[in-house]
Design a protein around this nucleic acid. Structure first.
Length: 397
DNA sequence: TCTGGGGTCCTAGGACCC
DNA sequence: TCTGGGGTCCTAGGACCC
């Protein structure tokens, strides 16, 4: 999708259409997505808000709503699935499709791509760019060539010519990041052609097992199949993190954020109908140095309070703090599906039923309309509002 | 108002078991 | 004790992606 979050916001709110818009997070934040109008002023993803305002004083700042984008993404998936079940989501706004087996039904790749662009435009009012190629690497590369609203096909026989001209930096975004690109340049590999032709042992010496993969990228080769949609594509982990309004040593504030993040993870866990048993706490300090530690327990858990108790235990181990804390994050992994077997202990059973009931109220009236009393301290500090949680006003009514 | 938030995968080493 | 070999699970940190 092109300028995805900003385009969704512009579609939802006509006032924003045709204007420079940036979508950002809450608190100390950056530009997450800039609309094409904003990009004309030089605004780019990753800039701070003051930087964006300096480039364009009239830029409209919109606080992002991830649920809205996920909802739109699921609608896009449904459009793609009308053609084939070989639809593999790659990120919130990208999918791979393998249309090899359905060309007889719907026409060749180019025809299908045109149809998809038309459907997404008609039904959702959004533009996208589609790349067509022999494999995922080529298709992804093609999709980046023409934006916005692009359509580009790279023929098999042209791969070698196109890749031979590319610098390794231009391969960024298809498996090669900044660090790898720098390292490749430092050992004298400057182009995709050189990477593809490089001696395998030489690459393995410098990059380990990644060397195999790098050589293939250089050659434009990728054998990985496009997965069938939702084919046991279970989530491996999920978490929430937040940058504090100011760096702090205040344990009450830090623990309130840890609790809030834990509760959010718990809500998500139940929404996905999963259980987890590894909790990870991430702390970023004022100097951007970060600490993370995880703890695995024997039994599976599913509520924010259980998650918090483990995260808090990890946090207590790093006290006293030597540096002010900038960000806290809590995540859970080692996940399994919750088959809703009754629990051995009645006390836990009731506690879990309570969590489900709170979820059903909050899904109707807003996030954290009903919440643990211990989060009231977070409310007192204004933490909920700063994290974009607005459900609290309803309970007062 | 310098630097967000959500993920996946890999690695090297340690704990532990037989 | 001049201590083998095979295996699983766990962990902290880093690279990478959007």
């Amino acid at each position: 999708m092109n300028s995805y979050f900003a385009s969704v916001e512009q579609k939802c709110n006509p006032v924003l259409q045709g204007k420079p818009v940036v979508v950002c997070g809450y608190g100390r934040t950056i530009v997450v997505t800039a609309s094409y109008e904003a990009r004309e002023y030089g605004i780019k993803t990753g800039m701070t808000i003051p930087e964006a305002k300096k480039l364009c004083p009239n830029v409209i700042i919109v606080y992002g709503n991830i649920d809205k984008y996920i909802d739109t993404t699921l609608k896009i998936h449904q459009i793609l699935l009308r053609f084939t079940d070989r639809v593999e989501p790659f990120s919130i706004d990208e999918c791979f499709m393998d249309v090899t087996d359905v060309e007889k039904l719907f026409g060749d790749g180019l025809t299908i791509a045109k149809k998809i662009k038309q459907l997404i435009k008609e039904e959702l009012g959004l533009n996208c760019s589609i790349g067509i190629g022999e494999n995922k690497i080529i298709a992804k590369f093609a999709s980046k060539l023409k934006k916005p609203d692009g359509l580009c096909k790279i023929e098999k026989e042209d791969i070698k010519n196109i890749f031979s001209l590319l610098s390794v930096r231009e391969l960024q975004g298809i498996g090669i990041g900044k660090k790898i690109a720098e390292k490749l340049e430092s050992i004298g590999i400057l182009t995709a052609q050189q990477l593809g032709d490089a001696n395998l042992d030489f690459l393995i010496k410098h990059f380990g097992i990644l060397g195999y993969h790098l050589k293939k990228i250089g050659q434009g080769v990728d054998d990985s199949p496009v997965k069938i949609y939702d084919d046991k594509n279970y989530i491996k982990s999920f978490g929430h993190s937040h940058t504090l309004p100011t760096d702090t040593y205040d344990l009450n504030i830090i623990k309130s954020y840890i609790l809030l993040m834990s509760e959010k993870v718990g809500v998500r866990l139940r929404k996905e109908n999963m259980l987890g048993r590894t909790v990870s706490l991430m702390i970023r300090y004022e100097d951007f140095d970060s600490f993370s530690k995880q703890y695995t327990i024997k039994h599976y858990i599913r509520t924010g309070y259980e998650i918090y108790k483990i995260a808090e235990k990890i946090f207590n181990q790093i006290l006293p703090l030597k540096k002010a804390v900038r960000l806290v994050g809590v995540s859970i992994s080692n996940l399994i599906q919750d088959n809703k077997q009754p629990f051995l202990f009645n006390r836990l059973q009731k506690y879990y039923q309570l969590a489900d009931m709170v979820d059903s109220i909050n899904s109707k009236y807003g996030e954290f309309t009903v919440k643990p009393a211990s989060l009231i301290i977070a409310e007192k500090f204004g933490i909920l509002e700063r994290c974009g949680i607005i459900g609290t006003s309803l309970i007062k009514k």
